[in-house]
Amino acid sequence: MKKRLKYIIAAVVVVLLAYNSVYFEKLSEVKAEAATGKFDAASYAATFWDTKLMPGLNQAVEVNDLMAQLQSDKEAAFKAHSNALGIGNIRYFLIKGEGELSSINENDVTILAMADGEQKPVKIATEFVYGNAVRDALGLVDLNDFSNTMDLNNVSEELNRKIRTEVVPPFRAAAKKGDKVTFIGAIELNKEHLRLDEIEVIPVALEVVKE
């Protein structure tokens, strides 16, 4: 009798737990509901580009000023001008500058810009546009808009695709060696292992200045 009571209590507990653990729905209805709320990285990226990135370009720091600040007070420069979604040493900056187009290569162009008080080559990526620099440089992406990291990464991919297809081609078509060029773009720097001689800019705005 005592044993039977034990089993009955155990069964009741299991049923109660199961009842509060799962719920059943029609799969077709769940899928239909999910489809309406599916994240569209392309439209998010387009909206982000138009409403946040473009208006925020005026926050870009002059490459010359940034280099000088990084040399004099790295911590302060990172604190003032860098952004990143995660923690760690990799941080992103939105920079701007102008200079003479010194070389046009298959994967990039080099601009001789004033940096750290002297004319320095700044590499602008035109072919391999990857990473999260553009997405994160302004610090305007809200993580709460994303339910998973794939969606977040897809936004970067869409932004980079936009750069490859909309920013780079008109510039490459018009630019000649020796032209004066202005640029705004994002760069990635490692706070712990700072290398200022290997900066590569992911361009957001790239124009040949007509004299």
Binding site: L17, N20, S21, V22, Y23, F24, E25, K26, L27, S28, E29, V30
Partner: peptide
Amino acid sequence: FGLEFPGMDMFVGFTMLGAVLA
């Protein structure tokens, strides 16, 4: 994500308690 059983057109969702117990 719960569990999906397409053949039965059934979706089994899990509450926090259910997921933790699982």
